[in-house]
Computed example of a mutant assay.
Amino acid sequence: MFKVMIVDDNMTNLIMAKKVLEEIYEVVPVNAGKTALEFLRDMPDPPDIILLDIDMPDINGFYVLSEMRNDPRLADVRVIFLTAQDDPTTEVEGYYLGAVDYIKKPYTTALLRKRLDVHVQQIESERKLKRYNENLSNTLKEKVHNIVELEYALVEMFASLMAGRSHMIAGHCERVQKYMDIFMEDIMATGKYAIAESDKEKLVFASKLHDMGKLCMTDRCLADMGDLSLQEKEFNHAHTIIGAEACKKVTEAISKNAFFTYVYNLCRSHHERWDGKGYPDRLMTTDIPLEARILAIVNSYDNFRNHNDGADPLSHIEAVKRLSLWSGTHYDPDLVEIFVSGADKYEHAAD
């Protein structure tokens, strides 16, 4: 049942209005503006509508409404002014303060009832729309949650497959993900790149799949001790395309999905070089997707620190120096600068 407060210092009007409305509404009659404010502040649930007389001896209706609008609990309560005045200025002032309607005195009981019914119907419609929107929002949140769970499950599935295929590759991908998390924080802290927190989380998790194309490599290519033939090297390079094409099958099957777009770009372009001498597409500078330029640095850092293309692994300091040396040729110089400025964070991050 809707709750209606009637505020009027005229007892005859107050009694008449209460008698007409109490059959279908919960009616709260009040005979003074000051008392109305006290009731409103003490009520656990404010009324749905207030019929508010403007001309009252203690404080007028305008003051009551202005006080209500300053109270977050009462700011959205519908107020209908009751007035014997026939002055357009008064009406404009009421609407300016936030009144939703005016009923001029003297009024008939039929008019009062009908005007109130119209506003109650509007409130019902608004509440139905709000419930619908909340249900829709909850449904969307649930669907998004299910999609995120699926994305994470797919990542873990491929990570498990890579671990079964090569512990070396699986370990590399785990470490790269940790480095990526640190690097993304530092990149976002500069404010130079428009990366949302939600995108950062997707990128970090997607980085774990950058080498999934190596599932199709031979054992010798996976080991890559630096003694591969030219043909084997070409075949090894193909892991970027193999991983990207596998991901492309997913992106073609579902509508726009940022996560799998990131996976695709990371798989395909993490071996591109700033000077255009990388593979597979010989992209250069900012034609290389930002996420791939970011990954290229942490990917190389881990390679330098571990198998290093068959050579002796580099120390942390040596790896950072090589990244600096190759800045502007292999890597985006702005990103290298950010990495180097926070280089100490990476030395033991993957221990």
Rank of each mutant, 00 (worst) to 15 (best):
M11H: 10
A17Y: 03
K18L: 01
A32W: 06
A32S: 14
D48C: 07
P57Y: 02
I59M: 11
Y63W: 05
R69Q: 10
D71K: 01
R73I: 11
Y95I: 03
D101T: 01
T109R: 07
L111Y: 04
K114R: 15
L116V: 05
D117T: 04
K128D: 07
K130R: 15
R131G: 00
Y132S: 06
N133A: 08
K141P: 02
L154P: 02
S160H: 06
R175Y: 02
V176L: 07
Y179W: 02
G191I: 03
E197A: 11
S198A: 13
S207K: 08
L209W: 04
M212G: 05
L215Q: 11
A223L: 14
Q231W: 04
E234F: 02
A244S: 12
I254P: 06
K256C: 05
Y262G: 05
D275V: 04
D275K: 00
G276W: 10
P280A: 00
D281W: 07
T286A: 05
P289S: 08
V298D: 11
V298T: 15
N308S: 01
A311V: 00
D312K: 15
A319K: 13
V320G: 12
K321Q: 12
L325C: 08
V336A: 01
V336Y: 00
I338R: 12
G342E: 13
G342S: 15
G342N: 15
A343W: 00
D344V: 06
A349F: 09
A350R: 12
D351I: 08
